Simulated assay, not measured.
Amino acid sequence: MVTTLSLELFSLAGKVAVVTGAGAGIGKGVARLFAKAGATLVIADRDLAAAELVAAELRAKDRAAIALCFDLADEASVTRLFDEVERSFHTVDILVNNAGIYPKFPLDSLTHAQWLEMQEVNVWGCFVCMREAARRMRTGGKGGRIINISSVGAARTAVHHQVAYNASKAALDSMTMSAALEYAPDGILVNSVLPGAVKPLDPRPKAYSHVSPTGPLMAPGRILLGRAADAAEVAGPILMLASAAGGYITGQTITIDGGFSIS
């Protein structure tokens, strides 16, 4: 039986949550769970049609949600996103910094352009999201939560051909700790979650990546729980960090990998 205390601990009633990359995958799972917890959702995605579908799904269940288009690779687009959220809701309480790219490039053929694109999107783009959200949280004076979606690959090599991606996620985790230090006096808590394998394992068209995923994460027995996670299973710990239940956690990296990293 769910108690009133547990509902209060995990409630997001009255909170405005921006979830980037929420048109699919982990972001979509987070949006669905946050909506159940009472948050007003901003479904932000480069694919506006996908974002609109998620927002419409939530509104059909009497949840408050809007869809906005933005491009993580374009600083001006990120700023416009948060300006629009501020105009619409006068606040930003939660950012789930989930959008990113993850093509796989063999190390010995990785080009400068490929490296720079990965860092430009996954590092600088996510930094701009943090900066713009935190500016508005500071102005609001009520604190806030920023949850960065990193990867188990940031801490432990899991898949071949991801040197550029892993470097970008390691940088994101370092930024998480720096931002947590900077923003603690304002009551803004900043954490990273590091998912392992999440279904579907390779959702993008094969043309986007040069190679299919192989490596330790795909090896039999390496995921101790025996399967990839559902997006909802990653969303649960993110809800904890966004809610009162995570009110004394900041600057942390929380691994959600089914036991892979200890196998």
Rank of each mutant, 00 (worst) to 15 (best):
A179E: 07
A179M: 10
A179G: 12
L181V: 03
E182Y: 08
E182P: 06
E182W: 06
Y183W: 13
Y183H: 12
A184M: 03
A184S: 11
A184Q: 01
P185G: 09
P185D: 10
D186Q: 14
G187F: 06
I188T: 12
L189G: 09
V190T: 11
V190Q: 08
N191T: 05
N191H: 03
N191K: 07
S192Y: 02
V193I: 15
L194A: 09
L194Q: 13
L194K: 10
G196N: 09
G196M: 02
K199P: 00
K199C: 06
P200N: 11
L201E: 07
D202S: 15
P203K: 07
A207Y: 12
Y208E: 15
Y208D: 15
S209V: 09
S209Y: 13
V211L: 06
V211K: 05
V211F: 00
S212T: 14
P213L: 04
T214C: 10
T214E: 13
T214L: 11
G215W: 05
G215H: 08
P216Q: 02
P216G: 04
L217P: 07
M218N: 11
A219K: 12
A219S: 09
P220T: 04
P220W: 08
P220K: 10
P220G: 05
G221K: 01
G221W: 02
I223F: 00
I223E: 00
G226F: 01
R227F: 08
A228V: 01
A229V: 01
A231C: 09
A231G: 12
